[in-house]
């Protein structure tokens, strides 16, 4: 006998969980046309499924040209940040039932980054800002033979900002970033925070100087869009405020 297959019984259950949902997707392919169009697709879907499942149904069964990035499908790789019903989210972490399936679900690319095709944007400026804050441990002197010591309290101090998956949901939800792509943006500041408040790191001053720039932390207007958008639940606005405070007090 083979390994039990789960789907056999499913078909027999009386009430189908499937509902019909309209996906309204912003389409753009400069290879074909410079025009942006909104296209509707009707999809049969279980409300417990993810928006990503809906996009896959469209791509696999209706229109193979629909283009988006995705990989892990459970909110850890950061590939599929999109603007869903006007809010930045990961398509793989947003369930249909948590939207209003009665109305069309709108899906468009994240804002503030150049759209390359459909839901795919140019991530390079985003990663450049990340690289610019020197997101790596900076230490002086000789390396210890064993591990560097760190108390559980010191480890906890920067725990929240280690969760970042670089999906860009925060940065591309920030009105300051929309207006000025030179602004480092929340994600880069979050990753600077992760090192500034790491007791092992000795590069805090350098990073703070980088963020003291005119395109640095002072551009933040504390609109909390980033905190709302973060699929990892990082308290981003708080982290940015802590960096601002560190700049003033030079204590971190």
């Amino acid at each position: 006998m083979a390994t039990p297959v789960l789907d056999k019984v499913e078909a027999e259950s009386a009430a189908s969980p499937y509902i019909t949902v309209t996906f309204r997707i912003r389409r753009f392919n400069p290879e074909i046309s410079d025009a942006v169009v909104w296209e509707d697709f009707q999809v049969e879907i279980d409300p417990k499924e993810r928006v990503l499942d809906g996009l896959h149904k469209i791509k696999w069964d209706l229109d193979g040209t629909l283009t988006f990035r995705r990989s892990c499908a459970h909110g850890i790789c950061g590939s599929d940040a999109m603007r869903i019903n006007g809010k930045n989210r990961l398509a793989c972490k947003t369930l249909i039932k948590d939207l209003n399936p009665e109305k069309p679900i709108t899906v468009e690319p994240i804002k503030g980054l150049t759209v390359l095709k459909d839901l795919v944007v140019d991530m390079e400026p985003f990663f450049q800002a990340y690289r610019d804050v020197m997101p790596f441990l900076i230490t002086k002197g000789n390396e210890p033979t064993r591990e560097r010591k760190q108390s559980p309290e010191d480890r906890e101090r920067y725990d929240d900002t280690t969760k970042c998956i670089l999906c860009a949901a925060c940065t591309s939800s920030c009105p300051v970033f929309w207006n000025d792509g030179q602004y480092f943006g929340p994600a880069a500041i979050v990753n600077a925070h992760r090192f500034i408040f790491d007791s092992r790191d000795e590069g805090g001053e350098q990073r703070l100087e980088i963020l003291n720039d005119k395109d640095g932390v002072w551009r933040c207007r504390t609109t909390f869009n980033c905190t709302d958008a973060c699929p990892r639940g990082i308290e981003i606005t708080k982290a940015i405020q802590e960096v601002k405070r560190a700049l003033i007090t030079r204590r971190f």
Partner: peptide, 20 residues
Amino acid sequence: AVLDLEKMGLPFGRTPNGDI
């Protein structure tokens, strides 16, 4: 391999006396 990662900055969980 673990100690190398720690030196690269990996935030390992810690014991009360600060070891990995």
